[in-house]
Each structure stands twice: as structure tokens, then as C-alpha cells.
Write a protein that binds this DNA or RNA. Sequence first.
DNA 1: AAATAATCGAGACGGTACGTCGGGTCTTGTC
DNA 2: GACAAGACCCGACGTACCGTCTCGATTATTT
Lengths: 199, 199, 199, 199
Amino acid sequence: MGEAAGTGRKSIGARRNPDSADAILDAAEAVLAEAGYSGFSIEAVARRARAGKPTIYRWWPSKAALLLDVYQRQKRVDVPDTGNLEDDLVGFLKNLFAHWRLTASGNVFRSLIAEAQSDSHAAAALAGYATGRRAHTGQVIERAKARGEVAPEVDAGIVADLIASYAWRHLLTNRLDEDQATLRTAVRYVISGISARRR
Amino acid sequence: MGEAAGTGRKSIGARRNPDSADAILDAAEAVLAEAGYSGFSIEAVARRARAGKPTIYRWWPSKAALLLDVYQRQKRVDVPDTGNLEDDLVGFLKNLFAHWRLTASGNVFRSLIAEAQSDSHAAAALAGYATGRRAHTGQVIERAKARGEVAPEVDAGIVADLIASYAWRHLLTNRLDEDQATLRTAVRYVISGISARRR
Amino acid sequence: MGEAAGTGRKSIGARRNPDSADAILDAAEAVLAEAGYSGFSIEAVARRARAGKPTIYRWWPSKAALLLDVYQRQKRVDVPDTGNLEDDLVGFLKNLFAHWRLTASGNVFRSLIAEAQSDSHAAAALAGYATGRRAHTGQVIERAKARGEVAPEVDAGIVADLIASYAWRHLLTNRLDEDQATLRTAVRYVISGISARRR
Amino acid sequence: MGEAAGTGRKSIGARRNPDSADAILDAAEAVLAEAGYSGFSIEAVARRARAGKPTIYRWWPSKAALLLDVYQRQKRVDVPDTGNLEDDLVGFLKNLFAHWRLTASGNVFRSLIAEAQSDSHAAAALAGYATGRRAHTGQVIERAKARGEVAPEVDAGIVADLIASYAWRHLLTNRLDEDQATLRTAVRYVISGISARRR
DNA sequence: AAATAATCGAGACGGTACGTCGGGTCTTGTC
DNA sequence: GACAAGACCCGACGTACCGTCTCGATTATTT
């Protein structure tokens, strides 16, 4: 996972040292994985990265900014393209939950959301990120629209919102091990509705 | 709102003083309202309530327990019963958002969720609370089922989950001012689906 | 010298814990003795005393205040009373230099003077202390006046100032090992003058 | 006072740029004058001089060395030659105090003494400087000896020491505004003594 | 004329210390 | 035995400087 080079990093002149940046992000991830959000402090990250606190503060103005960078370094979970909307969305949720569960990402993102509740910078950063992701997820809906699977007047953003909300709440309440049938049911409700008239 | 009695509370003998408990809960709510989650500390609550820190720790083992108590003291938002599921759910969301937006409740609940990300006791307490609320919301669905509005095989818990998730995410991302049309659209998707075949 | 009790001090209620105060003063003295003024930091004192920094700041608003307390805890060097002014003053300087040289006091006082050059609180504290000591030394002169050794119109404060100044400069320039003959000569100049007419 | 050239100094090739040296010494003096010793940092000097820190460290190995250079750039206070020892010495003290009080020199020298208490290089530099000055002041005594005013066996160094010590202590305890009568009295004690027999 | 070498400003680096805040524990004296 | 009060140790906060390093640019000296 990298750890800091044992022999000590130095400045490489009047510009950012990418080794330090990497070491700090690695350390942040490791601290979060080992000590959780409650043990996640700039102090601890600096210690682990063998970096000075000012170096961290220089590049990441807040804990949230650091968390966001850590999160964004992770591999993205992308939405499958099976030609069928339900499968796409179920697959996406399945992949996302697995990613969150099996890597540090889940904890990172949970922490980021928590941080955003007390830090407006974090809130802004998270909002920006969420918007981007919503557009991304929205594309699946648009694809389905193009295939004629989804009614053309449907607002893809709202649908993406419903799906993302469902994912967030599972993350925040430790339900990432939800069984696939339940996920599929939830997705199906959104796609087909629950109305008696229409089923 | 209560504030602490200016002249100082004393012990009332070898049992819990309910005035102190009230003063502490009042203070907690006030601190949260004025300083937000980031300014919410046991220290600040004690100061404001003119209470000793040990008095707080004696009765509430963690910040989360205190938050939960504060939240549960609040008036509940209940689901309207209009005879129409869509109106019921939209009304519920509307009321809930207004409640969260206009009282301290929103901040309290946000804080509770945030706290639950670093404190397993908080997480457990929140999970318990959420389960209770899910059942509560689920009843609306069951009523609609009874009216024949909703297909009988529908899992009310999952629907309640979708609705609650949507609400949570709006709370956590500062979107409690969502316009009503959007809420109605989201609810309609869950009820009627987005599939082209069925609209 | 005390060191901190290994098992940890606790609060003894809502009042100052004298054990902590002692441990902190002991630690301050030890740090100064071992690391000198440049290594003398509140941080280091806290570490050594196993005390929290806030505990130190609670009772000593500045490094200078702590230094002053440490210095005043030391045994005082008093002026001998031999019945002869020259012997009294030479004896005083000899004792003072030995005291400064052989105990931590010299370093403490040096540090205090240094600190006073950048901290006005320290300067005020030092000025107050110096005034007290000047009166003290002045008494030797007054005794000599009473014996008829010293002219009655002589300003004892100014004489004390000359002597103290001489001592300070030796302290500040690492000349505490000045040989006794030189001290005696200096004292003799002040008592008998250097004028050709009068010797 | 110079300030740094607004448009930026550059290297003038493979040798020391005297403009930079001047700018740094000017800046050091200005910082000391405006912020005092506590605000005197290499960082602040570099900022003010628009110089790189390594440029400072290249030429002055320590804060003390820089201070010493700043001090030595100042105009010297010389001892008057009135043909009368008392007037010479009183005049010297008067001039010295005025110089210290009215220019940055007083602060510079105070700082230098303070610095010498924690930095052995500074101590050595200061000792060297003091020795030089002592010889200088000693010449006044020697002149008086030559005139027959002072007994031939008197050690001019010790007398100079007494006078310089008196000056130092006034500097270090913020008493540069001492009235002239007091100075004269102190000088007179050293010259004529305080003994009853001889007055 | 080209290559070398030392200097310059700039500013990042790993660190240490600053002075403050809050956490959770403890004890005292009053009710 | 509960209460207000507040001290205790601890650890994190975000900032200021420390002294070192490396850069790219500049320019006098050497080839």
C-alpha cells in the first residue's frame, strides 16, 4: 500500500512533491481502514505518512478535502450496460455495495458524509461530487429511454436520486450486505411501480 | 425553551433531578440550533445548562444517546391519511421536510446520523429507531394495499425504505427546500414506475 | 527531585492539585537543567511532568511566570553580616555566583532575563523581583551606614544597583567563575573609589 | 531605509549580491524595530527583504550572527574626552542610553543578549564584542590615569566592567530613561567610593 | 562563444512548539 | 446518592517558524 519511504522524503524544490501527496493519501486511507472515522485525525495521518501537518494543511484545507481526494482516487464503480434497465441498476447497486464493503471506500464515503454534516466546505464538496455522480447514473436511464424502455418524459435525475438515496442509506446504516433479491425488488418498484392497476 | 433556572439548580437528594435532565436536553437542542453539529459538545451543553459534565455523562453515556433523546422529545411527523397513496406520501415528505427545516429536528437528526458513522452505539440506536419508523411508514402502504391501490404482494418495508432514503439524502445534502412537484414526481415513480409499457 | 508519580495523578476535585504544581515545577527545573533555555518549552515540561499542557497554562500564563516560580522556589542567597562592608559584599557575590553556578538557579535566572526581552509580562515580573532584591541588598549598605562605615548621604539603592548589575553581567556572559580577587577589587572600587586623591 | 527594490533582485553571478545583504540587514532592523525580538524571525526578515531564506542562512549561520551584524552596522557611541573622568563617563552613559533609546540599537542589543542565553555561538560572539568594547571604554580610564586623576594601580578593565554592567542592566530592565543625576551619582561612587573615611 | 559555477528568489519539505478546545474521569462540598 | 463546579491527563486542532532542499533564472568567470 506504499507506506512512506523509510529514509525520509525531502522537498523537491518550490513545488508540490507528488511522493508526499501519495504518502499522505495512502496514510489517510490506511488510518481510516484501521481506526475508522473516529480515529481519523490529521495528526494521525501526518504521523503515519511521516509528513508534517502543515504539508497536509497546505494542500487539503480540511479533513473533508482529504477524504474526498482519497475517495476519488479509488476505482470507480460503473454502471453495467446489459441492454436491460433493471439488470443495469441491480448490477450497479450490487457492484457498488461490494466495492463499499470490500475496500476502504465505504468507510471513506461514510466519513465524508458525516464530515459534511459539520463542515460546510465538506458539504459543498460532497454536493459537487454527488451532482457529478447523479449525471453519471442518469445516463443509464437515458440509455433505457433511447431503447424505448423508459417513458420519454421521465426525469432521469430524479430516478438517479432515488437509486443513490437507497444506496446511501444502506451505507449509512450498515446494510451493505443486503441480499440481491431485495435490491432487485427495490429497483423493480422504481421501474414498474407498485400500483395495483398496472401490474 | 426553558434555559436553565438562573439561580442554580441543586441536588434534590439521592435521586435524579428531572429539572436537570430537562435543562440539559433544552440546552442540547439550543446548542445544536445555534452552533450546529460542529459546535455541539458535551462541554458546551453543560455550560449552557449550568450543569456539571458528570451529570450529563451519568445519564447519557455518549453524545449519540443525548442526541437521540433530544430527537425523540420532538413532535413526530405523521403520515396523512387522505385516502390516496400518492397524496399521503407526498404530504408526509412535505411535512417531514418542513419539520426538519423549521425546527431543530433536522439538525438533530443529521447530527445523529453523522455521529452514528463513528460511534457504534449511535449506529445501533439509529438502526433501532429507523426500524421503528419504517414500520410506521409501512402502514401507509398497507392501508393502500387494503384499499386495493397497491398490489398485495408488494413489500411495504422496501417501499418505506425507498421513501425514507430519499428523505435522508435530502436532509444530508441540504436539499430540504426541494419543490413539491419534484417530490410528487419521485413518489409517483415509486408508485407507478417509469417503464414505458405501463404509462 | 520528585519526578511525577508513575501511576498518574488525577484531579482532587474542583481545586488546584498541589502534586501537579510540584511535578510541573520540578519538571521545569529539570528540563532547564538538562536542555537549557533553548530546549525549555511548555511542551517539554508537560511531557516530563506527565501533565497536560492546559494544566500548565491554567496556572502559569506564560513561560516567564513558570520560570519565575521555579526561581523563587530556590533557596535565597543572603548577604553575610561580617561587620565589614567589603567582606559582606564580596561574600555575597561569591555565594551568589556559587549558587548560580552549582544549582539550576543560574540557568533559570538567565532564561528569565532572556524571556523578559521578548515578553512584557516577563519584564514586569522581573522588574518587580529585581526591586525586591535591590531593597534586600540595600540593607547591607544601610547596616554599614549605621556602623559609620559608609557616608550617610549615600544612596543605598544605587550601590545595590551597581553590585547587582555586575553580578547580572557575569551571569549573562558566562563569567560566574570569576576569581575572588577580581570580585574583591570590583567591590573595593565601589567602596573606596579609584580616584588618585583618595587612595 | 532601503526596503527591497520593488522589481525584484536577482543574482549578479557567482558572488554575493551586496544589495541582498543590505536589504536583509535593513529588513532585520526594521522587523526588530516594529515587532520587537519576539516577532524577529528569519522567516519575517526574509519576507520583508523579499529574500529567500537560504540566502540568509548562507551568509549568517544563526539569528545571533545576523543580530550582531545589524548591531555593528550602527553608529558607535564614543566616549567624550572632556579632560575630566566623571564627565567622560557620565557623558558616555548618557549618550549610550540615548542611542539605545532612540534608535533600533537598544532593541538589537537586548535581543542579542537574549539570544546569547540559548545559543552558544551568540554567546561567543557577544563575549568577543564585549571584550572589544571593554578595551575601548578602558581607554578613558587610562587617559585619566595618564592625567593623574586615577591611581596608577587601578585595573581599567574592572572599572569598565562595572560601568558596562550598569548600562546593560538598565537596558535589560527598561530603565534607559534614568535621570542624569542618578547616572552621575553612580559614576561618582565608582570614582570616589562611598566610604565615610574618604569623603 | 560555450560551458561552468555560484548566487538569487521562491517555496515545499519534515518537524517542533505554540496556545486552545473538548473528551471522559475524578473529587469536593452542598443539598 | 445526586448535584454544580471545576481540576486533572490526554490528544487533536490549525498556525508559525525552524533549517534544509531543490528548482529555474541569472550572470561573471573559465575554457
